[in-house]
Design a protein around this nucleic acid. Structure first.
Lengths: 204, 204
DNA sequence: CTATAGTGAACGAACGTTCGTTCTTGATCC
DNA sequence: GGATCAAGAACGAACGTTCGTTCACTATAG
């Protein structure tokens, strides 16, 4: 075999990075193979030595992101693993912020898949979300309930709602570029939302 | 002037509708002018009698949607106008559901704008959201606070958080095709979220 | 020697836009 | 009130460019 293994790996990663940079800013159909090749510093024909077609290149990028996103060492997975009291809601909010920052490109590519292709990726990613939350949290939530730390609202649904709110807030900020949606900084926004989920709007 | 006014209006709306159908399913760069013309039952050249360029056609669609979306008679605007107690949170949730259903195409086009073009539309739409919420709600929230119907959480931030959660939930369901995110139907999902925002997760 | 990375010209199809032309219609004239 | 006129709707061929993909070919490492 020719071309030392590390230089081949280098080429592949340069192609990947160039494709990510372009797909996230111009979309799928708005990005040409020639443009990817030029950005990656690679010939047009060589792209097809590494990926059979443009769609395969796009799919392989999504797959790689998905593997990293669903790994057990992401900020959100760690925050979920460490969750053991309602005082940890802020930590989930902050983990959501870091997730959106770290995976901003992935999120954009998911939108690309939704609006330009079939959008199957997000359905695979979020299907059965409730079940996964139950597997992750049911034991600890039961412990908290026995300790009298939980009210009467469905805690699994409440945690999903909280995570959704955190995520969408930072999605707005980071991916859509809508700054200071609440008129305050990130930490204060997380605090406002966490307090809302913990205390509710009704007086106590 | 030629070509009876109503038939011209007909042509224009057929072009608009065809462009919406195609842009929402294939994206901006994935949709060709020929395809729009054929779907609308109009010649290619005639497209340019009504819109100077492809980008102008896209922009005019976004503008028309924006006008309808920000009108005072949408489900959400009515729900906001009718809001006068925490028992109305479910109505805001249901109005959010109807908004996403009615404006699903608009939402998809906003994603298209973000992913394939500059994405300026959403920043214009959501900039200063906090200020607008304050203008809409501050008076009634003050009334509720005097009546002792509100706790210590910032009610404006809480209402924004609630609306964001409602919207993103139905966005998932309707725009992304992720069904039954909470494992329950729409009404039950709204009830779960509304109760969370009203009561909070802590015991009372 | 062989297998593969790497190259860039070449292919046909599709792209957005322009163009000359015809058709339709409401207004203007006598 | 029928003939005349001009504005713009409607058409489809054609332009130059770019698209994704293929292919014949070279270079190089095992």
């Amino acid at each position: 075999m020719p071309a030392s293994a590390e230089s081949v790996a280098d080429t592949r990663s340069r192609i990947h990075q160039a494709a990510i940079d372009l797909f996230t800013t111009q979309g799928y159909h708005g990005t040409g193979m020639r443009e990817i090749a030029k950005t990656a510093g690679v010939s047009l024909g060589n792209l097809y030595n590494h990926h059979a077609a443009k769609e395969d290149l796009f799919a392989s990028i999504l797959d790689e992101f998905e593997a990293r996103y669903t790994a057990p060492d992401t900020p959100l997975a760690r925050a979920f693993a460490d969750f053991e009291s309602l005082d940890d809601l802020e930590a989930i909010g902050d983990a959501s912020r870091r997730m959106v920052a770290e995976f901003a490109d992935y999120i954009r590519l998911i939108y690309v898949d939704v609006v330009e292709l079939e959008g199957g990726h997000i359905r695979r990613l979020f299907g059965g979300m409730r079940r996964r939350y139950e597997e992750v949290f049911s034991e600890r939530l039961e412990t908290m309930r026995r300790r009298g730390e939980l009210g009467r609202v469905d805690p699994v649904a409440a945690l999903m709602t909280a995570t959704i709110a955190f995520f969408y807030y930072f999605n707005m900020e980071r991916v859509f570029g809508v700054r200071r949606l609440f008129g305050v900084g990130d930490a204060e926004a997380v605090a406002l939302m966490a307090r809302t989920f913990r205390e509710g709007m009704r007086p106590r």
